[in-house]
Amino acid sequence: MAAPEPNADAPAIRVRALSKTFDVPVRAAGLRSALTSIVKRKTRAVEAVREVSLEVAAGEIVGFLGPNGAGKTTTLKMLAGLLHPSAGQAHVLGFVPQDRQKAFLRQITLVMGQRNQLLWDIPVEDSFERNRAIYRIAPADYRRTVDELSDLLDLGELLDKPVRNLSLGERMKCEVAAALLHTPRILFLDEPTIGLDVTMQRRIREFVADYNRRTGASVLLTSHYMADVEALCKRVVVIHHGRILYDGALSELVQRFASHKTLNLELEEGDEGAGTDLSRYGEVVSSGAGRASLRIPKAETPATTARLLSELPVKDLTVEDPPIEEVIERVFSAEAE
């Protein structure tokens, strides 16, 4: 089969009304139904992904947000050719993913934060060597890539250690490097920083951003950590119950869904708002020692701010958007209503 030649302007990923339904076995609790299920299995159709449509440009980093079971990983797996869609179409670099053509597979990579591809008992570099052989990377290219990756991720000392002797963070760095030896043009990163400490998370993030800048690869990322998404993705896709609830700029998401703002007050010393009932102004999130935080509906923010400034001895006042987690949570609960 001829490999489609992607033209430069075409989106790297194009998805139209993609759906995935699983038949999930169900059985009631108890021995009787356990015995029955040996012979006859009952299944229930679960719609994991429903009519998802989106486009990702070459070089774009898109964050997939959603609670567990939202359909993020299922979508990612369909795009990586691991799952056949039940309906709809996907094109990645002009290929149909589930055909799993070699020319397609050579240009993508998959990193799963909860699973390892490195071999446990042998040094990291020997696992790399295995991937080199599978992807048929020319020795010179391979050497250059390994040097680059080990510079960027600081792998120097780790390469000749057996994987079982590495810490979780070290192992993840090596996993990421192993997944990039063939310099893929599309990166599917499924929770790449899960379980890592803050420093290591930042390290991986910076690396992904850098890889994207240098190679112009597109990145699809799912993560539970908002920090990942905030640092890497200008654009986010919020998925819930298999549907896209929001697809757009991260900043816009906050604008659109944040219903409240947080006002942080600092009052003059000696007058800590004693006797003043702050709940008159808004929902008191915290107060004490001359400071208070109030949650104010967005529309009322200007008026409330003016009232606070005129009625109380305010030393300092800041207005903040709520944390992104809160906004996302709101998106989900809005959908549930």
Binding site: K77, A80, G81, L82, R100, K102, A103, L105, R106, I108, T109, L110, M112, R115, N116, Q117, I134, Y135
Partner: peptide, 13 residues
Amino acid sequence: REGTLDFTLTKPE
């Protein structure tokens, strides 16, 4: 069982 077959299936072989 463990889902690591996905790594094999994304290899160009």
